[in-house]
Every structure is written in C-alpha cells, then in structure tokens.
Design a protein around this nucleic acid. Structure first.
Lengths: 343, 343
DNA sequence: AGCTGTCGTGCAATCGATTGCGTGGAGCTT
DNA sequence: AAGCTCCACGCAATCGATTGCACGACAGCT
C-alpha cells in the first residue's frame, strides 16, 4: 500500500511550486501558466499517476461534487429509472450521488436530510418530500440547493418537477368514455402523498367537465399504493352495490390488485369491468391482461430534476429559474380496457 | 445563508482550546476531559447547533465513512433489495454509499472504480465484477478493501459473497424429476457472467449425478438475461425436434420469455411443458402462471457483503476473514411446474 | 534610459478537524 | 515542605488543494 501522489510530489519532481502545479492541472487556470511548464507538469503528473484528492479540494472550496438523492424506497420499480436519469446528467459533469431511502417516514426524512448536509452534498434532489418537513425547510433556508421531484411543494421557494397528472387522468377518462363507459369508479391513492391527492383532485375536475355526475360513493381511497389495497378498494366498491363498468386507478399496482380481486369474484377484465392504471411501471408487459395506463417519463423526470439542480448549483441568479416543471404524460392503451358492456 | 458552526466557535464560546472541544465531542477521547468541562462543551455545541464537518475530518484521518457500491444496473429488479440490505448494515454505522452502474461494460467498470477511488471511499462492494478488471485488481493491490457480490473472483485475494447456485440447480432438478420429468432442457445464461457459467456447470454436474444422459443439444445459451433471449432459446430447443417436458432456466426472466413463446406456439405451461426460473425476483406473484423458482436472499446477500466489508475496514488482521461466503437458497414451488405429461 | 504594464510564478494563508507532544498545576508521598 | 507523579488541557503541525497577493522579470513605450 503505497502513499498516494500529491501536488507536492509533482512540485518536487518538476522543481516548481505546488501552486503552479495546481494551476497547471486545472484546465481553467491553466492559461495562466507557460505552455512549456504546464506540459512538463502534466507529463510528471501522468508519469507519477497523480489523482487529485477531492476531499482536500472540497475542504478548501466547500464543494464536494456530490448531490444527495432522497427517494421513498429504491425497491419500488418506478425509482430506479429516475435514478438512472439523474445519473445520466450528473455523472458526466463529475458529480456523484448519495441515495437514501426514507420509507415514507417523516422521522427518517428529517434525519436523512441532516445526514446529507453533514456529508456536505452540494445539493439535494428530493423525490420523497412530505408536505412539510422542518429539516428540509431549514436546509433550504440555509441555502442548500434543493429540487423536489414528483411532489409538489406549497412553499414556493423550492423548484419542483412533476408529471402532468391532471392531463393523464383527463386522457384516461376520455379514453374510457370513448369506449362507452358512463359509470366510472376511482381508486384513489393515499391522500397524504401529493400524487394521490393530485390524481383524485384531477379525477373530480375531469368528471365535473363531463356531464356525468361524480358519485362520491364510487371513489375508494387506498392507504398505500399496493396490490392489496387495490383489492380491498375494489371489493369495497362492489360491496356498495352501485353499478360501475370501469375503474380508473391512481396507480398501476392498485389496478393490478383490483383486477386480481375482480377475477376472484368472477368478473372478467376487460369484458365485465375495464381497469386502468397510472405510471406504466416496468414489467407490465408481462402481466395479463396487459394494463392500459398512463406512461410517465421516469428517466426524463430524473434528467429534468438533475438539470435543474445543476443550474441552481452553478448560476448565481437562481431567481430566474422555473420553479415549476411539468412533464408531459402519454396514454398507453393495452388490454385492460375495452368497450362498456351493455347494461 | 449563515456560516456553519465550527469547533473554533465552540472553543471561543466556552473559553477552551479547539483541541479540547474536539476531544470532548468524540465519545472515544472524551474520557480524557474533565466531566464538567465536557458537559459545558457539549451544551455549547448543542446550543450553537454544531455539526461536525466530515470533509475536514476526512482529510485529516483519511477516512470518509463512505463506501462505493458497483452494480450492473439499478433498474434490474434484483439489485434494489441488495442495496437495501447493504444500507441496513452500513447506515447505522454512519457509512453512506455511492452507487454506480456499470451496465456490464468493462470500460465503464474500470472508469468507475477510479471514480470511487478519487472520491476516497473507504471500501468497495462490487456486485458487477467482470472476470478480470485491471483497475479493480490495482485498487485491491493498493490496499483498497473490496468485497465482491454475486460474482466469484478467481484471484483469491478478494473475499466474495455468492449464493449457492449449485444447490439451487440441484434442488430444482430433483423437484422436476420427482414430478416425473426425464427429458429436461436447460436455457443457460450468458457465459461471460459468472452466474450464467456457474449455473450451467451446476446443471451438467447435477445431470451427471442422475442416471440421465445430458443431451448437449438440450442446452441453449442466452446472450442476455432477458425475456427475448428466453423466447429465442426455447424456440431453438423446439426447433431441434428433440422431446423435452421441462425447461430449467438459469434465470426468471429467461423463464418468463420461454413460457410466453411456448404459449404462442400453443404449448401450455405447466400442462405440456414445465418451466422453472432462478432468483425469485419481485413481482413474480403477479405473473401467470406463477413461476416455480429458486429463492435467493438478495437482502441477506447485501447484508453479508456489507458486514464483511465493515470487518475489512476495521480489523487489521484481514487474513483471518473468510474469503468465501456461500448463502443458502430455497426452492419455491408455484404453478409453472407440474407432473410430466404421459409420453 | 527610465517608466509603466503585463505576465508567470512563488509565498503563505486557508478550509476544519485531529493528534502527538509539551506543560503547568494539583495532589500525593516522605 | 520539597519533590514527585499524573492528568487535563493547550500548542502547533498536519492532511492536500486552492487562491489572493506580491514580486520579479521582461517588454513596450516615450
């Protein structure tokens, strides 16, 4: 285990001062050095196998070239593509990211924000923001660049990237109506998550725009975005005794659970009941019936958030940045929706 | 944006020297300080909201409390649980991890090893090791603690954690034979990945132990671990004209692709052909027929690798650590395997 | 020739925490 | 009471890179 090569070693080797070496090796300051000297220094650096010590540089410059990424849970399939999107922007610029999972717990969220701050991250991409976390607010106040993803923040000071939930719900509802559905139920997501909330609100709005009455009893609210809640909610809808020919779900997993339970109850999808999802998560093409859903650009959302953060990191005038980025979504028609059955 | 609180601030506040503050705040060295003084210092630290600067500490101590984690691709569903396993061990100990994706490219792998080294990670968990990467070997030689995961390294110097592939293949083969299958095909994984290689070797060994002849023509080799290759391989097997009643696949995705293609060809699984997977990846319970597979402790493997790395990081006598950790696997019988059809 | 301006390089402080060593004083022994 | 030990704390160097400032040399101008 040999000691690593430092600027001092190169300085000794080439007979110049460390500051000269430092300047010669930084492309920005290199122009201040005689070409001949700079080349000699670069050659020596190469020969000795010099690798800059980012820690030391970070101490001096107060930049670590590291960003924190907060997500609810990496095992949730919608997040890995987001992370790859983030990485695709950040890695070429020399940034690395530290990823943390909040598991949707506020206590963990608060703690992890501080973990990231302690590590001196230059900024944070927050894809797991709860409505109001004091530590996040504090970090933002203290000047930490933050971008939230998938979660809208009321505050207004923090720029965010979201998908066009409203448009997605609207497109899906139109699709169902074009298929002849008039009695449409909704399985809403958890109302403490902004996606659940936004999609429910969008559903109500979209229903209001149609001439159809929106029967509140045809809305069931899940406590989690998972299959078992989808199953429970569809069962609740059935138990209400009200007729419905389609269920618009706030998320793919809810939809899958609902289809499963309907099947158990002897109802076929889409022949008897059409069911739609939201997110277009990976692997849907392997599950039968293939789910009609709203496609979201996960990768693109990650990229957008990362680009936004990079701007925050570089530009002094953060005022002129968009605080709100809304990404387009797209209806993907597959097999789980079909013509409404005759009454 | 106010300046952050440093040891110096606390020293000024309490009227002692920074070194005393440093000692009072470190639980290990605290015993060298008068209780009364230490309490005063802690109170001041608390009051001022002191947060230690890890960068500065890292520069001095040469430890960043950061580890690098290399995986092929985070969007592959088997990796997120591994990462959570790693996190569950590392995070409580104060470590953070930097995750990088190699995409299975050797060039990226080499580059990313250096990225991690430049960032001064204390160690690396390498779940994407190719057979012989010079940069990885160099890092190990230079004293970088490394543990590999899921990939065996011939070298011998680097400890590794793997699953008991051999046992898994063996259990599956026994299961198929108990169901009456005698003509068993194998869809092997890519032979440039150690899992593909190991599982194929295990299949040959296991077949040899039975009295059945292992017909090499009933082995198809995939170029990637994905559904389309599973489909292609099963088609190749069918095209051979040889009879087989079961296909043991090296991986779940190959199995899913194979089932799909069989179905397209009018062959039912498991009635006509039994198909088995390997890995027990998430979401299998949603896909019909539910796949019989070998369950791997992804989370446990991550934990094991992390624990091993932590030992390397702390203990001086690294000699006495196990260089080889083999984790047990478990047969999970579901619906894709059934009794062999009558000839 | 002398003056000014420019350019290349060196000097030294700095970032914040850690740590080996030195020192002064308290407390104990004889 | 003198001398000794030991302990708590201070001092200062250190980790490696960055950067404002100063200085010296040389060129260009009058």
């Amino acid at each position: 285990m040999k000691r690593r090569v430092t600027l001092k070693d190169i300085a000794r080797e080439t007979g110049v001062h460390v500051s000269t070496v430092s300047r010669a090796l930084d492309p920005v300051t290199r122009k201040a050095i005689t070409a001949e000297v700079a080349e000699k220094i670069q050659a020596a650096a190469e020969r000795l196998g010099y690798r800059p010590n980012r820690i030391a540089a970070g101490l001096r410059t107060n930049r670590t070239m590291t960003v924190g990424v907060m997500i609810p849970d990496i095992t949730n399939v919608i997040f890995p593509p987001i992370l790859r999107g983030i990485e695709s922007v950040l890695e070429p610029l020399g940034y690395a990211s530290i990823i943390v999972n909040t598991d949707g717990e506020k206590e963990r969220e608060s703690r992890l924000v501080n973990v990231l701050r302690d590590r001196g991250v230059d900024g944070i991409i927050h894809a797991a923001a709860t409505r109001d976390d004091p530590m996040v607010a504090r970090a933002a106040e203290d000047g930490m660049p933050i971008v939230t993803l998938n979660r809208r923040v009321e505050d207004g000071a923090i720029p965010f990237v979201i998908n066009d939930e409203q448009s997605g719900i609207c497109q899906m509802l139109r699709h169902l109506m074009e298929l002849g559905h008039r009695s449409i139920a909704h399985i809403a997501g958890p109302q403490d998550l902004s996606t659940g909330q936004l999609r429910l609100a969008a559903f109500r709005d979209a229903m209001a725009e149609t001439k159809l009455a929106c029967d509140e009893r045809l809305i069931a609210t899940a406590t989690h975005f998972d299959e078992s809640e989808g199953a429970r909610c569809v069962e609740q809808l059935l138990a209400s005794g009200l007729r419905f020919t389609a269920v618009l779900c706030a998320n793919d997993r809810l939809a899958l659970g609902a289809i499963e339970r309907l099947h158990e109850k002897g109802l076929n999808c889409p022949a008897d009941v059409s069911v739609s999802g939201f997110n277009d998560m990976p692997f849907l093409n392997l599950i039968r019936p293939r789910l009609t859903t709203i496609h979201i650009e996960q990768h693109g959302a990650g990229q957008a958030a990362a680009r936004l953060l990079v701007q925050l990191l570089n530009d002094a005038e953060t005022d002129r940045l968009p605080t709100e980025t809304v990404l387009p979504v797209r209806l993907v028609v597959r097999e789980s929706t079909g013509p409404a059955p005759a009454p």
